[in-house]
């Protein structure tokens, strides 16, 4: 069976189907994170006392991870641009860098943030601040893991599609890049909300 509109634009939407699909998915993700951000605002505004993020969390580590994710957004766009210029070798290099940066983010998050906090008994049950911190950043970290799995597949076995259907493969990279950007932009909002305010 031939799946329609994987490459060509669907006349009624003006997009190929995967792009419409990823935007519908990202819209549902906005609602998920939006709900949690609302919970954070309500918990904070309703609390008689609240921690100052910069005193409880490590601002240098948060800043480093922000830099890592911004850089990974640049590399994922470069991987897409390399494919547009028919350079699979460069695509592999940039996508590999994106995966590496995602892994750096996760390792720093777990080793230098989660583990010391758990050791100091700063766990979700100790205060609402840590409850919302772990929920928001944990859910975000799960999204990074999801992105790494998809990007890893597209870097490795999935890249064989470049030989059989390069246009569809290029579209897949664009869709994966859109998801990765969404994950990164969530962090751009999480960082000041949790670490600075």
């Amino acid at each position: 069976m031939q799946i329609p509109y994987t490459v060509t634009v669907r006349p009624d939407t003006g997009l190929y189907n995967a792009k419409l699909g990823i935007w519908l998915f990202l819209a549902s993700e906005v609602m998920l994170f939006g709900g949690l951000f609302s919970a954070y605002i309500l918990l904070r505004s309703g609390a008689t006392s609240w921690f100052v993020g910069s005193e409880e969390l490590s601002v240098p580590i948060g800043t480093f991870n922000t830099f890592v994710l911004i850089l990974s957004s640049v590399t994922v766009v470069m991987s897409w641009a390399s494919l547009r210029m028919n350079d699979l070798k460069k695509y592999k290099m940039y996508m590999g860098l994106t995966i590496l940066l995602g892994l750096v983010f996760l390792v720093v998050k777990v080793l230098f943030e989660y583990m010391p906090k758990i050791e100091h008994h700063h766990i979700p049950s100790s205060h609402n601040f840590f409850a919302i911190y772990f929920v928001l950043t944990g859910l975000h970290a799960l999204h990074v893991v999801g992105g790494l799995i998809v990007n890893g597949y597209l870097w490795g076995p999935g890249s064989k599609m470049w030989d059989t259907d390069p246009e569809q493969f290029l579209n897949r990279i664009e869709v994966a890049g859109l998801y990765w950007h969404f994950v990164d932009i969530i962090w751009i909002f999480l960082f000041p909300a949790l670490y600075l305010l």
């Binding site: 957004s73 766009v77 890049g177 950007h181």
Partner: peptide
């Protein structure tokens, strides 16, 4: 992706 990257 171009537009989203610019927004990002």
């Amino acid at each position: 992706l171009k537009a989203f990257h610019l927004a990002f």
